[in-house]
């Protein structure tokens, strides 16, 4: 049997979501971003909100998210995505607005914008990729970098006396009255990815129903930044990250 005899519609077991573009992603092989992009593309298409969804991309590895998912996008300044999303959501109430942010964007330079948008209960979805490192700029310390974790700016490991504690931004957001749904997920196994997809769907439904701010943290890998193979990075994440950032819902209203 030749390959062309196998590639037939009736044999199809999987296909790329229609909203994902036919382009090569710039993400490193093994990176969690690609999976999360796919899940968002699926959720948006399945919910039938493609035409009214506006994404706000961050500064960080996901800066080019607008090249991959076929909805309208605004590329925000570093950390400012929640402020940008606030205006879009308020000025176009019928639209569905989500931010897609990394740990530096969400919990360092943009902490104020993150907390205040959530505190106002803006009807937006915040997707938070927490890989405990700055991938785009070459592996520097993130606010969520674990104690002892080596990065290019903590070459001997993060020290509490020098660098402070890892910031649990998601836990903080769960305490705010403006958030209606705060959850922490991951995408390292098919089962985990399915749960993340369900979480994203719930978050987008909240935005449509104007229930307040939904936060979906995805504990992620950065195998390049962590200097590990993709498989090893997944193992390291399970062994080290989940202890500090346990998976599950932090708040469901």
């Amino acid at each position: 049997m030749e390959i062309k005899d196998i590639i037939k519609e009736e044999n199809k077991v999987y296909s790329k979501p229609e909203l994902l573009d036919n382009v090569h992603m710039h993400y490193c092989p093994g990176c969690s971003h690609g999976v999360v992009h796919k899940l968002i593309a699926e959720v948006v298409a399945e919910m039938g909100i493609t035409d009214k969804t506006v994404g706000v991309s961050p500064v960080g590895c996901a800066v080019f998210a607008y090249n991959y998912i076929d909805v309208d996008w605004i590329e925000a300044a570093h950390g400012r995505a929640p402020a940008v999303a606030t205006a879009v959501s308020r000025l176009w109430e019928e639209n569905v607005v989500f931010t897609y942010q990394g740990d530096g964007d969400m919990a360092a330079i943009g902490t104020a914008e993150t907390i205040h948008a959530a505190n106002r209960g803006e009807n937006i979805v915040m997707v938070f990729i927490n890989n405990a490192i700055y991938g785009m700029t070459g592996g520097q310390m993130a606010p969520t970098t674990l104690v002892g974790q080596k990065t290019s700016t903590t070459p001997y490991g993060r020290r509490i006396d020098l660098n402070g504690h890892p910031l649990e931004i998601t836990d903080i957001l769960a305490t705010l009255s403006g958030t209606c749904y705060v959850t922490r997920q991951s995408v390292h196994t098919p089962g985990a990815a399915r749960k993340t997809k369900a979480a994203l769907k719930k978050a987008f439904e909240n935005a449509i129903a104007k229930r307040g701010t939904s936060v979906v943290e995805v504990v992620s890998t950065c195998n390049s930044g962590w200097k590990m193979s993709p498989v090893k990075a997944n193992e390291w994440m399970v062994e080290n990250m989940f202890d500090k950032y346990p998976l599950g819902d932090l708040k469901v209203e």
């Binding site: 506006v54 402020a83 940008v84 205006a87 879009v88 000025l91 176009w92 104020a112 914008e113």
Partner: peptide, 26 residues
């Protein structure tokens, strides 16, 4: 018209950036 007291000047101008991105007069 939407009126919002932002948490900072930085947030305010980025709200303007967001609104302007959607063609609104902000």
């Amino acid at each position: 018209m939407v009126v919002l007291q932002a948490e900072s000047e930085v947030a305010a101008i980025n709200m303007v950036y967001g609104g302007a991105s959607t063609g609104k007069a902000v």
